[in-house]
Simulated assay, not measured.
Amino acid sequence: MNRKPGGLTRREQHARTREALLGATIRCLVDHGYAGTTTQRIQDAAGVSRGALLHHFGSKSELLVAAIHHIADIRLHHVDELTTDLDDGPEALEQLVQAIRSAMAGPAFQAAIELWVAARTDRLLRAALLPVEKRLDSALRTLFHHHAGIPDPGAASTAFESLMALVRGLELTRIMRTDQSLADQIVEDWLTTVARLRRG
């Protein structure tokens, strides 16, 4: 087995460098925005050489497409971790909503926002972003329909869409609120409304 210095195989070193570059891309998107995320900044943040970066990603576009997939995987993994032990009891929906809120927050979501905004005018970026977001949406939708307990499919679909719009909007407007407890109250109101659909 071909091992590099430090006891890592070539494959392990390759995976570690790729992970470092993707992690650095997320940090740069959060810290500098899409426009300020340059390959030089990513390279510096990852602590790798120019040659190492180009070995993994031949262009900035290629790196950002990989980052889109990586960000979606992080968010899905986060939801999976929080919902592994979820049952069909009365508290399941509230726990699921909190898991989705958690996935729609933090660096991965902030980086995703930067990519969404850029994709509005970048055709290639949008083409890469849409199927990944659809995959994430489909996974969350499946979880929601399983645990929401809303018998009417149309009402369940509307409830899911309103939840996604709600949690995304709350996170986007977080910096404008001085009282963060207001967001919790808004979600509580949503849960109260959906409880009536479950009984119906």
Rank of each mutant, 00 (worst) to 15 (best):
V65P: 00
V65F: 11
V65Q: 11
A67C: 08
A67T: 08
I68E: 13
H69C: 15
H70F: 14
H70V: 07
H70E: 15
H70K: 11
I71E: 08
I71S: 00
D73W: 05
D73E: 15
D73S: 10
I74M: 14
I74P: 00
I74W: 09
R75M: 13
L76H: 10
L76G: 07
H77A: 08
H78G: 00
H78L: 02
V79M: 12
V79S: 03
V79K: 05
D80C: 00
D80S: 01
E81D: 08
E81S: 01
E81N: 03
E81Q: 11
L82N: 02
L82D: 01
L82T: 02
L82M: 09
L82W: 00
T83F: 07
T83G: 01
T84L: 11
T84Q: 10
D85W: 13
D87F: 06
D88T: 10
D88Y: 11
D88P: 04
G89L: 09
G89D: 14
G89I: 08
E91K: 07
A92P: 02
L93Y: 08
L93A: 02
E94Y: 04
Q95R: 14
Q95D: 12
Q95T: 10
L96A: 02
L96T: 03
L96V: 01
V97L: 03
Q98D: 15
Q98G: 05
Q98Y: 08
Q98P: 05
A99Y: 00
A99R: 01
I100A: 09
R101A: 00
S102M: 15
S102V: 07
S102R: 15
A103S: 11
A103K: 04
A103Y: 06
M104T: 12
M104V: 10
M104C: 13
A105L: 12
G106V: 13
G106S: 09
P107Y: 04
P107W: 08
P107T: 12
A108H: 07
Q110C: 02
Q110G: 04
A111R: 04
A112E: 15
A112I: 14
I113S: 12
I113H: 10
I113K: 14
E114L: 06
E114S: 07
